[in-house]
Amino acid sequence: MKDQTYTYITGAAIFLLFLGQVMPKWAVFLATVSLCYGTIVLGMILLVRNGLVSFGHGLYYCLGAYAAGTLRPFWGNSELLVMLAAAIFLTAAVAFILGFLLRKYRDIFFAMLSLAFSMILYGLLSKNAALGSTDGFNVYVDTILGVPLTDFEDPRYVIFGITILGAWISCMLMHRYLKSDKGKLAEAIRDNELRVEYLGANVSTIIHFNYVISAVLAGIGGALMAISIGHIDPEMSYWTTSGEFVFITILAGSGSVIAPFLGAFIFETIRSFAYEYSPNTWQMLLGITMLVVIVFLPNGLWSLFAKIHKKINQ
C-alpha cells in the first residue's frame, strides 16, 4: 500500500488555509491553538515511540514562548522569523545539555526528572520581576519577513497561515524521519533496548537526538502560541501544562504524525465548550476520557482510525 500521509498532511494544510478565510474568529483561534499543541505533541509521540513519557515538556513550550517573547523588550527586535529562530535555538541548546542527563533515565524516572526541570524554570520565571513574575507579559510582533505587521490587511490571518506552515513543515519532516532507518530504531529501543545495543546501535545517542527534536518541536509550538495569543506566563512551564500534552499524547496515540493534530483539535474543542458550559467538570471529563483510552484504546484514537481505514480498504 502506498503511503499517502504526505498528501493528507498537505491537503489538510491547504484546506485549513482556505477555511481560515471564512471561519469565524473563535474557530480560527481554536484551530491555531490546536496546531500549536499538535506540533508539541508531535514531539511527544516521538518520545513515546522510544518508550518515554515526558511530564515536563512544558519546559520547552515555555522556553520557546519566552525566547520569542523576550526579543522585543530586551533586544528591540520582534521580527517573526527571528522569534521562531530564537525559540528553536534556545530549546535545542537547553535540550542538548539536559539530554546528557535525561538520556540515562527511563520510565517514571524520565517522567519525574523532566517534570523537575520544568518546575525549575517555573520557579525561576515566577520570581523574575523583569519578566513579569507570575503575570508574564504581552508579546507583540512588529514585522514578518521585514514587512510591518500593520501593512497587512488581516494580520491575524497571516499569523494563522504561518502557524499552519510551521505545523506542516514539522509534520512532513517528522513523518520522513519516522520512516527512516534511524527513526524506526525508536520503536526497537522501546521494545528491547539491550538488543539494540547488542546489534551495534547507540541507544543513548538516539534517545538524546530524539529528545532534542521533541524539545525543538515544543519550542516551535510555544513560540507560535506566544505569537498567536500575544501573552505568555510561567504557567506554561507548570507541570499541569505538561500534563495536558501527556493527555493529548495518550488520547491521540503514536501511530501517525496526523494523530497529534487530531488529538489536539479534539482536546481544544472540548475545552472551549467545557469552559463555557461546565468549567468545574472539565478536568473530570479529561480524566474519565483518559481512563477509557488507557483501558480500551491503549494505542490511542489513531488505532481506532487505522482499524476503520483498513476495513474500508478491504
Binding site: 532507518d181 534511524k182 524506526k184 530504531l185 526497537a188 539494540v196 546489534l199 551495534g200 546501535a201
Partner: peptide, 11 residues
C-alpha cells in the same frame, strides 16, 4: 531482521 540489518549497514 530489517532493524538488525539497518544497524549493521549503518555502522
Amino acid at each position: 531482521l530489517t532493524i538488525s540489518a539497518s544497524i549493521a549497514i549503518g555502522h
